[in-house]
Design a protein around this nucleic acid. Structure first.
Lengths: 243, 243
DNA sequence: CGAAGGCTTGATAGACCTCAAACACAGTGG
DNA sequence: CCACTGTGTTTGAGGTCTATCAAGCCTTCG
């Protein structure tokens, strides 16, 4: 518990620090936050549509997603979360969840009571911007996904997603220069990009055929990131990274 | 200027108050905010991708949108703004704009210097949640649009948009029980919903044929909102309205 | 070895797009 | 008052992208 809790705080620092520099007093304040750890198997829901959480989740290990279901049971994945992300930070200010959050791979999650988080923000107003920024970033990513779903072909959408995940994974300390392990099934990729599984598979094949990606199992190797970025019209401005 | 400024503050109060109750001291603090008014003709940009604003816009009159352009010049509208909305509030914490904002109809906009806004938030910490909530709401709407673009047919997307705008317009004091004036061209609807103009037109015809909407010029009359909501799978949870 | 989940393939259908043109209507200038 | 223009809407035809259905294959794992 002690060790894991330290890990939790480290993730929190790296992530929050990646968009805003943290002062020592801020770091100290964050260390005070009480955390409860929980583990989730793949496909388990962390939070559900309609819930009224009294704590926020901080993803420590694994990959998670937020999603909504249509009345016909079709799923749209709204965003992906990497370690350090806070999938339901908005619950601090919006009472009822308007989406669900599920683990994609086995995940460990730290929960922070709203009460404690509010306290820290009140005591340490300079931290407000740090957390607020996180929610703004989520919004920025959603907007870019809107462009993908609205105006890009399946081929391009996948290329774009692969580029986005590369950047986000690397910022989270995951993956190598040449590629990374993509923990998504083709059906999940389809759910994220508004595509059927079959079509996702075929677009993936085109990307392979064009030499933009090489796959060995779940590992995706990209020989030329610039080429993939061109195919996906990827411009990382929207990720608002420092430096 | 004096009068307009009052109008500005009124809009601010109504909008902010619609998701969170405002105390007297909060109201008072908001009245102190210095505002600069500007007018924009249709299609004029308020802010552009890449800009680094030093003030935030507050839409007073007219309808505006945020959008991005793809490299082939195709446009995706990311969100629509009604009077009271703050289209680039995020610039308070994210340096560079990752999207552009344009007037759709002739608009008047009040600008608040970041400096002043930061000051008010610092002096009046309870206002943080009020503004933060606004950005969270934008995110919630984006997510719902993702579901539309990813998993709904053109027919259903349009129905959904019409329902959303009805709620938002009414909250902004626009429109009547039976319908409202939709200030969007079919090409703009298409840009918002990821559709071509031609297909937008045809889907609109289907909605008319099915009796879900009646149009007289720009005015859209809806005989049965529940029926339209069913067609668009519209569930207003994501708008997080009070009461 | 069998079962389950994920990947791949083929065939067919439907949704949506593009191109091209006609039409409607309001605003403009002569 | 009437062409004239520009913007927005509508229509037709044809093609592309993507979905659906159905099946086979391949791995992993108990």
């Amino acid at each position: 518990m002690r060790l894991l809790s330290t890990l939790a705080h480290e993730h929190l620092f790296r992530k929050l620090g990646s968009v805003s520099a943290l002062s020592e007093s801020e770091t100290h304040a964050l260390l005070e936050l009480p955390l409860t750890l929980r583990n989730y198997p793949p496909h388990a829901d962390l939070v559900r549509f309609g819930d009224k959480p009294i704590e926020c989740a901080l993803l420590l290990e694994g990959i998670a997603c937020s999603y909504k279901l249509t009345s016909e049971g079709r799923r749209q994945i709204l965003s992906l979360f990497v370690p350090g992300d806070m999938p339901d930070l908005q619950s601090l200010f919006l009472e009822a969840m308007d989406y669900s959050v599920a683990a994609i791979t086995a995940s460990t999650v730290a929960f922070v009571p709203h009460e404690a988080l509010r306290q820290v923000l009140q005591t340490n107003p300079s931290l407000v911007g740090v957390f607020w920024r996180q929610t703004l970033l989520d919004g920025a990513i959603s907007r870019e996904w809107l462009v993908s779903l609205g105006r890009r072909t399946a081929y391009s959408r996948i290329a774009h997603l692969l580029c986005e995940l590369r950047v986000r994974f690397r910022d989270a300390g995951i993956g190598e220069e040449e590629g990374y392990t993509l923990p998504l099934t083709q059906s999940e990729i389809g759910d994220a990009l508004g595509l059927s599984t079959v079509h996702t598979n075929r677009a993936l094949q085109s990307l392979r055929y064009d030499g933009l990606i090489q796959t060995r199992g779940r590992y995706v190797a990209v020989p030329d990131w610039n080429a993939l970025a061109r195919a996906g019209e990827f411009d990382s401005t929207y990720l608002h990274r420092r430096g």
